[in-house]
Write a protein that binds this DNA or RNA. Structure first.
Length: 746
DNA sequence: CTCTTCCAGCTTTTT
DNA sequence: GCTGGAAGAG
């Protein structure tokens, strides 16, 4: 096979040197996927059997794309035999094969984040912990952190550091919740997303023979997006690669944007320590973007310290300068950005699919949707609630999961009274109580409901019996019938259809359509399974969709549409024109990143990711005022805008007559706060500041922070806060109720 | 047990 | 501004 014409010399080296550990630092748009696919093709052409190659990605989409590209190089059959997929799907598969070793059955249920949060809430209720103090999100975050760091409930309870942190957070009993949660998951034959990695680690730790089996099997290991691996993933890879040491990791430290989910940028930075004999390949030529865009991105990321040294460059055209749109309000920002898209589409006959609007938070999408709808521009939104998160789909899924695994308590709770059959909370709690007394599951209590005549009324038992029989009949079906038959039967026999039938509101109709859509998905699964000679039973179907996201059933059908998504979900994608919007302090960078420089650095990498999505043209926008959680805020423009080297930014054309397409005269921005330029104040002439005098722009004096300038005001009543820039200190947010502020006497 | 109304909460989220 | 969950009435 001859790759020399397809690859540059750096890429070629990375492809051809297949032995030993390799670190590929792949800058944005530098042909990372190309290197991975050709490297795999090279291995296959050397005679390495496909089933001995393990290739790990973070998204199903990335895995599928790679599979297609490899199939094009070496043919379908070989490509299909590769062990290629996401961490979660590959190790989920291995765990199903080895489940009995760990005390699970191969049909274990996978819980998504929502399911596990519900379970945590339930456990907290049983432990009588107040969910005002024990915020379920925070608790879940702690447990997830622990799992990703391979901290067992015992270790969690014993760790002095962790206990101190939890005590400080006024949540000293998280270890109890964690313990119950872990026990119940196991009892229910359930794994959450973190378990797919944690249990793999446990498997490899406790069963050396099994580890060795997979070490021998996977002669070559490749990992995509290595900068986004967490500790748990890192350790799995390290263990698997220990025997052959043929490990190739590809990544870009500048694009590490998932530390909030436990990703550890140091994994890529420390690769050289784990594999001292490694070879390093730096891919620095960007094939995606114009010189201007690459220069812009470089000038921004240069503000981060601690990077793997590299210089991304482009030999593409110079390209157009960056357009910065400044709008008075958030709504106006939407209108102006959409106008610009409209103008480009008209003047340059650009297809609408060539445009993407990228924002920091999903909540920002609404204004752009409205503006696009008004202009009759087709668009597609990514993110928000995905198909499998919809209530009606989750209801149906709960029945299906129960049919496969009756011990799945969350699913049982979800449908025991849906559709309404008069089984309320009290009854379920009685069952839970009975289950606890026998140290068994909720289903176990329900299936022995006759023995509970002491605590349940005959009437209640009469309501529970038919439900129990219903689930048993579904369970019976799954053994022999195809997934499609079971789902079809569940939809009708459970009463879901009758329940939805009565609702003829637009939402109700959409719910029915979603159920239909689900049926289509099952049918599609059955057909592929049949074609590929796999079982088309319900269990493998559920296993497959548990790890699917809405980006996966992306039917980019019909007409070309503008793409709207968060910057996070845009990673790995590219568009001719990219609009990065909402570039204001507190929003991008997020306010939550303001207290630590490492979080700010991550925000900057996120901005870098956004910029490097663009091929030809970049449009950046910010608004002077915007609604945020129902309040008006007026944050200054993002510092990231100032970090772009000015030579890349388009300077507004001098006004010659009225501009043709301007919809609204642009008022001057009142407050482009630049640090350290706060006017002096005469400290001799001060008076206590009246609350109404504290407005953006006003210069104030604070006894300990000195002179500062008000950036913005948030909150109402006693909660009113001022964000003030004190050049001698920092930007502070002060509660006006307490802050002793002074203004100059008029 | 069920329905309504009210109130707090609220980044990002490949799996 | 929107959503999900809790509380209270029927």
């Amino acid at each position: 096979m001859d790759f020399t014409h397809e690859l540059n010399s750096r890429q070629l080296e990375a492809v051809m040197n297949t032995k030993g550990p390799a670190l590929v630092i792949a800058g944005a748009g530098s042909g990372k996927t190309r290197v991975l696919t050709y490297r795999i093709a090279q291995l296959l052409s050397q005679g390495v059997p496909a089933y001995r190659i393990l290739a790990l990605t973070f998204t199903n989409k990335a895995a599928r794309e790679m599979q297609h590209r490899i199939a094009a190089l070496v043919g379908e059959t070989q490509a299909a035999n590769l062990w290629m997929g996401t961490f979660h799907s590959i190790f989920g598969k291995i765990l199903r094969l080895e489940a009995p070793l760990l005390g699970y059955t191969p049909d274990f249920t996978i819980y998504d984040a929502q399911d596990s949060k519900n379970m945590i809430k339930q456990i907290m209720k049983e432990l009588q912990l107040d969910d005002k103090i024990y915020n379920p999100n925070a608790v879940q975050g702690r447990i997830s952190m622990a799992k990703n760091m391979l901290v067992t409930p015992d270790a969690y309870a014993r760790s002095a550091d962790i206990q101190l942190a939890d005590k400080m957070a006024k949540k000293p009993l998280i270890h109890e919740i964690y313990r119950y949660y872990a026990t119940r998951c196991k009892k229910n034959n359930v794994m959450d997303f973190d378990d797919l990695l944690l249990q793999t680690n446990i498997l490899f730790r406790d069963f050396p023979d099994t580890l060795e089996k997979y070490q021998r099997k996977f002669e070559y290991i490749l990992v995509d997006e290595y900068q986004d691996t967490n500790y748990s993933q890192y350790l799995i890879i390290k263990k698997l690669a220990a025997l052959n040491r043929n490990i190739c990791v590809v990544g870009d430290d500048a694009q590490s944007i998932y530390s909030f989910r436990g990703a550890r940028i140091e994994n890529i930075l420390n690769f050289k320590n784990d594999y001292p004999e490694y070879s390093l390949y730096k891919l620095e030529q960007n094939y995606r973007s114009t010189v201007t865009i690459v220069g812009t991105a470089n000038s921004v990321i240069a503000h981060n310290e601690e990077q793997i040294p590299k210089e991304l460059f482009s030999r593409n055209e110079e390209g157009e300068k960056i357009k910065v749109i400044r709008a008075l309000t958030d709504r106006e920002e939407g209108v102006q950005v959409v106008n610009e898209i409209y103008r480009l589409a008209q003047n340059e006959h650009q297809d609408y699919s060539h445009f993407a609007i990228l924002y920091r938070t999903n909540a920002q999408s609404r204004l752009f949707e409205e503006a696009l709808r008004k202009q009759n521009i087709p668009y597609r939104i990514y993110g928000g609630t995905s198909f499998y998160q919809r209530k009606e789909v989750k209801d149906l899924l709960a029945y299906l999961r129960l049919a496969v695994n009756q011990d799945d308590e969350e699913s049982l709770r979800r449908v025991i009274n849906y559709p309404r059959r008069g089984i309320g909370e009290t009854t379920v709690e009685q069952l839970r109580h009975a289950a606890r007394a026998h140290d068994s599951t909720l289903w176990h209590a329900l299936s022995n409901v006759e023995s509970l005549h002491d605590c349940l009324s005959p009437g209640t038992i009469r309501k529970l019996e038919p439900f129990k029989t219903l689930i048993e009949s579904f369970a019976e079906m799954t053994k022999t019938e195809s997934a499609y038959h079971v789902v079809h039967r569940v939809v009708t026999a459970s009463g879901i259809v009758t329940d939805l039938e009565t609702d003829n509101t637009p939402e109700g109709i959409s719910r029915k359509e979603n159920i239909q859509e689900f049926l289509n998905a099952v049918k599609a699964f059955s057909e592929t399974a049949y074609k590929e000679n796999r079982e088309d039973k319900l269990a493998p179907f559920l296993a497959e969709i548990a790890l699917l996201t809405d980006q996966d059933n992306d039917q980019s059908n019909d007409l070309p549409k503008v793409t709207l998504m968060t910057v996070h979900s845009a990673k790995g994608l590219e568009f001719p024109t990219v609009c990065v919007v909402g570039l204001e302090e507190t929003l991008f960078p997020s306010i939550r990143s303001s207290h630590s420089s490492s979080e700010l650095a991550e925000e900057r990498r996120l901005f870098y990711v956004a910029l490097t999505r663009a091929e030809k043209r970049l449009i950046l926008s910010h608004a002077t005022t915007r609604y945020h959680n129902g309040e008006i805020i007026s944050p200054p423009p993002s510092r990231f805008l100032q970090e772009i080297h000015p030579r890349y930014i388009e300077t507004p054309a001098p006004r010659r007559g009225a501009p043709r397409h301007q919809t609204i005269a642009r008022p001057r921005v009142t407050m482009p706060v630049k640090r350290a330029e706060v006017p002096e104040i005469n400290t001799a002439e001060l008076q206590p500041a009246a609350p109404e005098a504290i407005v953006p722009g006003v210069v104030v004096y604070h006894p300990s922070f000195g002179t500062g300038q008000v950036i913005s005001i948030e909150g109402l009543g006693d909660n009113r806060k001022a964000k003030i820039d004190f050049p001698q200190h920092d930007i502070k947010v002060l509660l006006l109720k307490f802050a002793k502020l002074f203004t100059e006497k008029a």
